[in-house]
């Protein structure tokens, strides 16, 4: 049992270090399969189709943000 837990520990540590250093969650330019790479509550506003960036429909019909403070929704 101990050896499996020790092995999992090493594997998890490796995955975390690799993901951090290799930036697995970053957006890869012109790569349709990559993650969005957004941070701080930013959202992706499009995606790649055939290596070309296509804005999402929400980006094109934008204009309805109502704020996000504690008063929102009251």
């Amino acid at each position: 049992m101990s050896r499996y837990f020790a092995l999992f520990t090493v594997v998890l540590a490796f995955i975390c270090l690799y993901s951090g250093y290799a930036q697995r969650s970053a957006l890869v330019l012109r790569d349709e399969g990559s993650s969005s790479g957004t941070r701080y509550g930013t959202t992706s506003s499009g995606r790649y189709r055939g290596g070309v960036w296509v804005s999402s429909p929400t980006r094109q019909t934008y204009g309805s943000f109502r704020g996000g403070g504690p008063g929102a929704g009251k």
Partner: peptide, 10 residues
């Protein structure tokens, strides 16, 4: 544009 991201700031 090769990448874009949207932020709703307040």
């Amino acid at each position: 544009v090769v990448a874009a991201a949207l932020k709703e700031a307040w």
